[in-house]
């Protein structure tokens, strides 16, 4: 990543629920083609930060810039256009239960492209094959398992070939082989389609396997402790808390 081109810039972002502060003074940059990890202990506001980035939760102050274009500072139609470049995989899949998997994937295609019904179906079939669900086009979400729902959710997030894919805990609840496949898929999408990927996770295996950039959120101080390559943070970050997290608490004795 020598010619790093900033894709997402978070500047002075503060998120709060009313008077309750979630995170403050967040500043980080995601470069084009990064697999960017948002990590931190439970309850530190990882998912809330993600919601601010995809337009579900208005931040208290600060803004997020996509290719130097302000997100929350833009007017509604402009923001809607920006959102179309995103794909989001929600924690539990969030598939629309009244539609088959093919219809779930096809909805955005029907709305935003001129493809025929047959072409939409082929796209849906292809996306399902990519996530290992070949042949499940006509299943309803309540007929498949939790891990399959998650993969189908990923297929839906990829429907429009988004520039940026957001993942909320992608590998939670998946078996190791499927989780590995998902990681491979994320890297493959990055390499072939030049997708920027933002992942909320605390699965260390995934963090080191796919992440080349990250931000570490701390629930105590309510701000970011570190940002950068997770391997470098693990090996050489001055803050023991960051190293501790990345070493599964095994740095504790060293730092004491």
């Amino acid at each position: 990543m020598a010619d790093a081109e900033p894709h997402i810039s978070v500047r002075d972002l503060t998120i709060a629920f009313g008077d309750y502060l979630v995170q403050k003074d967040l500043n980080f940059t995601v470069n084009r083609g990064d697999v960017f990890i948002i990590m931190g202990g439970s309850g530190c506001g990882k998912s809330t930060l993600l919601k601010a980035m995809i337009g579900l939760k208005q931040p208290a102050t600060g803004d997020i810039f996509y290719s130097e274009e302000p997100f929350w500072g833009s007017d509604d139609p402009q923001r809607e256009r920006m959102k179309r470049r995103f794909g989001t995989l929600f924690q539990a899949g969030a598939l629309w239960s009244g539609m088959t998997l093919a219809e779930n994937i096809g909805l955005a295609l029907r709305q935003y492209t001129d493809l025929s019904a047959r072409q939409i179906r082929e796209v849906a079939a292809y996306k399902l094959m990519l996530v290992g669900l070949a042949g499940f086009e006509d299943y309803y979400p309540n007929e498949i398992s939790g891990g399959m729902k998650k993969r189908a959710g990923l297929a839906r997030a990829m429907a429009l070939d988004p520039e940026i894919l957001f993942f909320d805990e992608p590998s939670a609840g998946l078996d190791p082989i499927t989780a590995k496949r998902l990681d491979d898929l994320i890297l493959e999408l990055r390499d072939t389609l030049d997708t920027t990927v933002v992942v909320v996770t605390h699965e260390l295996a995934s963090i080191f396997a796919i992440g080349n950039n990250c931000v570490f959120l701390d629930p105590e101080t309510k701000t970011q402790l570190a940002t950068g390559n997770p391997r470098q943070l693990r090996d050489s970050h001055p803050n023991p808390e960051v190293r501790n997290f990345l070493l599964r608490g095994e740095a504790e004795t060293d730092s004491a």
Partner: peptide, 10 residues
């Protein structure tokens, strides 16, 4: 590569 991925899981 994408084709290969698509056909990895039969």
């Amino acid at each position: 590569r994408l084709l290969q991925m698509a056909f990895t899981v039969r």
